[in-house]
Each structure stands twice: as structure tokens, then as C-alpha cells.
Computed example of a mutant assay.
Amino acid sequence: MLTCPVCGDAVAAEDAFCEHCGHALRGEGAPGAGGVAAAPTVPDTAGSQPPCARCGARVSGGACTECGLRRRTGDHSELRLGTGAAGVSDRGLRHERNEDAMALRAVDLPGAGDRAAGSATAAVVCDGVSSSPRPDSAAAAAVEAGATALAASLESGQGTAEALSAALRRAAVTVAALAEAPGQAPACTFVGAAVPASGGPLGVAWVGDSRAYWVSEGRPAAPSALLTRDDSWSEAMVAMHVLSPEEAAVSPHAHTLTAWLGADYSGAAGRVAAFDPGGAGRLLLCSDGLWNHLPEPAELAGLVRGAGADPLAAARACVRFALERGGRDNVTAVVIDVPGPRTGEGVR
């Protein structure tokens, strides 16, 4: 059986392009031919489109004019919140659908005493558990419920930890309600954050193996770091000193989840943590479709910083990196600017 060299989908000998991902299979754009052919011309009825998720070239009619990558409605989405936060989510090259979801909300914080009202960004990324039924529905429901609850709690005056806990609870209840019968429980992971526009301490919350990374801009800010700890078999084995991190990472059970959102897991209270960056930088929320390729904080930080000052460009660079390395999973990256702290302001 012939397969596409990019996505691995079955192709016929006479095919010029892979019907799954749009990659050129023969002619100038075929592998080893010394060039990249454009995809067949399709009228662009959608107006301005984001650049190709894989190579960054122009997209027309849902197909890249350079590498031929095709994207259907729902395969690729982008969000921008003002100039300081943005996200990109893509199906990848192997999955039939995008089972990730993301949300960004602008939050107006109430004043307290002589403290002036401020603002914050609420962000959530969820990754559907592919082995569960309707994982895309679980992720979408959790993102909407979690982001809405987080924003509402912050606007009502709740502290960061309480607001993030409320977001986790609301997301968990919402996903659990999707179960149609015992053994038919949609499930997803969750990572959320509350980031004050004035700088200073921020908060993250999570269940599963979607992650939050701090990307430092240098001193006096704290070094780049992973802010979450996976709810996974490999993490548990390392914590119990049964396996080394290297041994756990190569196990076939490495990515087996030990906690998630869904009616078939009742212990998903999740975890909440505060982090004081001490200076300017960025917060990156992502699904494992990104960090599987680049798990170390310093390496991910280099990728984000190398994309320039625009958070959307940084999120696009993260997704492109994953696709260039095979795109085996759905991939989502949300990037939020974190300014240096200003005295007397911020999320409580």
C-alpha cells in the first residue's frame, strides 16, 4: 500500500496530491524533486485567511499555495485578544478532527478600598481524550464553561485561586453531563490561567497533561519553567522513584492519564498553583501535541521568543514546529504577554 510521506494516509499511485493533508505526491512538489508545488487552485471565498499552519505560506480556498496542506472548517482556528494574547489550534496531520479547544477572555477586575480596578486575561486550553467518545465535544464544553466561570469569578471579586478552582469545578460538571450512559463518558484535559495585565503573581489550574510554561524575558524575571505537573503514569512512576524520567518517557504507558475531566473519573478536583514571575515574560498554555516535541522549558522558551513580539506569531510558530515534526496529534498553543509588576495592582 502506498502512503503519503507527510501524514501517512493511504494514497493511489495515480494521485497527484494526498486527499488527507494536500501534500504534493508527484511532479515538482514530490519529495526529492527539488521544489514545492502549489496545490490545485481553488477560489478563495473566505477572504483573508491565516497563513499555512505548516509552512507559513499564503492560503487560498483552504489550501496552502506552497506546500499544498489543506484545512477544512474546524481543522484550524486562531484567536487574538487585544495585542497581548493569542492562540492557535490545529488538527495536525494524522487525526481526522481537531479534539483540542481554547478560549481567551478579557476580565475587568473590581476595585477594593483605595485600589483601582484593573484587568486580567483568563485563558483555557483543553485536549479531548481520544479514547473516549466525542472527545471534541468534551474539550469544547470544558473550554467554554471553564473560561466563562473563570472570568465571572474574577469579575465578582474572587481571588485567583478561588476563581480557578471554580473554573475547574464548572468544567468538570459540564463534561460529566455529556455522558449518555455508563461507559460512554466524553473526557478531556484542562489547563487554565489568570494573568493580571499589571504584572505580578499569576495563577494556573490543571487536570491531565495539558501544560503551562513560563517564558522569561531575562532578569529580574524568574527563569523559564514548567508551571504544571502532569497527571500521568510516567509522572507517577518518577514521583515514586520507580523509574527515572528517561525510563518513564520511553514507556508505552508514558502518556496514560491518571486524572481527567469526565463522568468516569470522580476525583478530578484538579490542582491550582500561584506563580510570581518577578518580571516580564510570557505564559504559554499548550496541549501535548506541542510539548511532546519540545518538553524542556528552555527549548520551548527559545521557540516562543524567536517568533518575535507578537503573541499570535509566537503561537503560530509553536503549531508550525509541531507540524514540521510530523503533526501526530492535535496541537494548541496560547501565548499571553506578562508585563513587569507595578506596585499596588494585579489579580489578588
Rank of each mutant, 00 (worst) to 15 (best):
T3M: 02
C4W: 09
V6P: 00
C7P: 09
V11W: 04
D15H: 12
C18T: 10
A30N: 09
D44H: 00
Q49V: 02
P50I: 00
R54E: 07
A57N: 04
V59D: 08
V59Y: 00
G61K: 01
G62I: 07
C64H: 00
L69V: 14
R72S: 14
T73G: 05
S89I: 01
D90L: 02
R94Y: 01
H95V: 04
E96F: 02
M102P: 01
G111A: 12
A116I: 02
S119V: 04
T121W: 03
A122Q: 04
S132H: 03
S137E: 15
A140N: 11
E144K: 11
E144P: 01
E144R: 14
A149L: 03
E155W: 03
Q158V: 00
A163W: 03
L164D: 12
R169E: 14
R170I: 06
A171I: 08
V173M: 01
V175P: 02
A179N: 10
G192E: 03
A193L: 01
A193T: 02
V195R: 06
G199P: 04
W206I: 04
W206L: 01
S210G: 00
S216I: 05
E217M: 06
G218N: 09
R219T: 13
A222S: 06
S224R: 07
W233C: 05
A239H: 06
M240L: 14
V250M: 07
L257V: 00
L261M: 13
A280Q: 02
L285P: 10
L290P: 13
W291D: 14
N292I: 07
A301E: 11
L303E: 11
L312T: 11
A315I: 13
C318Y: 11
R320E: 13
N330Y: 01
V338F: 12
P341T: 07
G346R: 10
